[in-house]
Structure formats: structure tokens, C-alpha cells
């Protein structure tokens, strides 16, 4: 058992975890943040994607103890109070989800993707970048559409901000 402490969605949290405890299990079981899902055992489905120190990470592929001292954002911490993040809004608007199981990981991966492509996104890039996230329901069509739309919204917001 190790004591770990980290910042999750802006709050300092601490707790004890077995050395073998994965970060995703710590988030789900110790902190009750069940929005982050587990869809596989081999680090491939992306249902567990969160942000650790600003980077998208598969939380099933990191030990809880490794995250000690880090700052973590999960799907529960993405919206700004009652205001949805533009990516969340775009997934709803464009029907980018059906059963919702892959959705938190998709949204967290997608926001990271936009951050890494300041030049903007096109369909081929979005599809290539989604390589680590599996969805069985949507055929990706509307997920791609949602990410492209959010990317537009976020960059036009950014431009407005710059202009102001």
C-alpha cells in the first residue's frame, strides 16, 4: 500500500492504494469518478482516457502511484460548471454517441487532439488520431463530425478572444 495525493478536477485528493492499483481503478473506486470507463485489458479501447498534467493518457496504463503529485482532469471535470465544454456540446449536437460507454474517453482524447493541432483538423487527421479509441455503436461517422465541428467552434472562439 502507498499513500498517494494528487489534484483531480481541481481538487486535492489523497488516499491509499495497492502498488498494483491502476489509476483508472483509483479514480473509479476510491474517488467514485465512474465516468472514466474500462473497456479492455490491453490498452487499446481508449474508454479510460483522461488528462494527466495536460496530456491525454490511458488511465488503465498508468499505476495510481505513478500519478501521485500530478494534476488530473477526468470527464467529470471538463465542463465549466453548468456550461458544457464545446466538445461535449458537439458530441450531443452531432449525435456522436449512442450507448455512451466510449464517449468519455472519446471526448477526452478529442480535446487533447485539438490542443495538439493548432493548425486545425481535417477528417483524415481526426480519423488517424482516433486510432486509440474504439466505438462499437456509431461507426465513427458522427464522432468525426462532432470533433471537426468542435474544432471549428474552439478555433473561432480563440480568434474572437485574440481579436478582443
Amino acid at each position: 500500500m502507498s499513500e498517494i495525493s494528487l489534484t483531480v478536477n481541481g481538487k486535492r485528493v489523497s488516499g491509499a492504494a495497492e502498488d498494483r492499483t491502476l489509476l483508472v481503478h483509483f479514480l473509479r473506486e476510491n474517488l467514485g469518478l465512474t465516468g472514466t470507463h474500462v473497456g479492455c485489458d490491453t490498452s487499446q479501447c481508449g474508454a479510460c482516457v483522461i488528462h494527466v498534467d495536460g496530456k491525454a493518457v490511458k488511465s488503465c496504463t498508468m499505476l495510481a502511484v505513478q500519478a501521485s503529485g500530478s494534476s488530473v482532469v477526468t470527464i467529470e471535470g471538463l465542463a465549466d460548471g453548468a456550461d458544457l465544454h464545446p466538445m461535449q456540446a458537439a458530441f450531443k449536437e452531432h449525435h456522436g454517441l449512442q450507448c455512451g460507454f466510449c464517449t468519455p474517453g472519446m471526448i477526452m482524447a478529442a480535446t487533447d487532439m485539438i490542443g495538439r493541432h493548432p493548425e486545425g483538423l481535417d477528417e483524415a487527421t481526426v480519423r488517424a488520431e482516433l486510432e486509440g479509441n474504439i466505438c462499437r455503436c456509431t461507426g465513427y461517422h458522427n464522432i468525426v463530425k462532432a470533433i471537426l465541428a468542435a474544432s471549428e467552434t474552439m478555433s473561432s472562439k480563440g480568434k474572437v478572444r485574440q481579436a478582443a
Binding site: R28, G32, I75, L78, K92, G100, P104
Partner: peptide
């Protein structure tokens, strides 16, 4: 019509069996 149920899924508030305690 955009889906009513989406709100909980996009905010991580869906309740699947593994989320039950």
C-alpha cells in the same frame, strides 16, 4: 431532436452496472 439522455453520458454521469455500489 438532439438526445435527452446525452447529458449524463457526455458529463461522465452515466450509470452502468460497474458503476453501482
Amino acid at each position: 431532436v438532439a438526445r435527452k439522455e446525452d447529458k449524463r453520458f457526455i458529463t461522465g454521469a452515466g450509470r452502468y452496472v460497474d458503476d453501482m455500489v
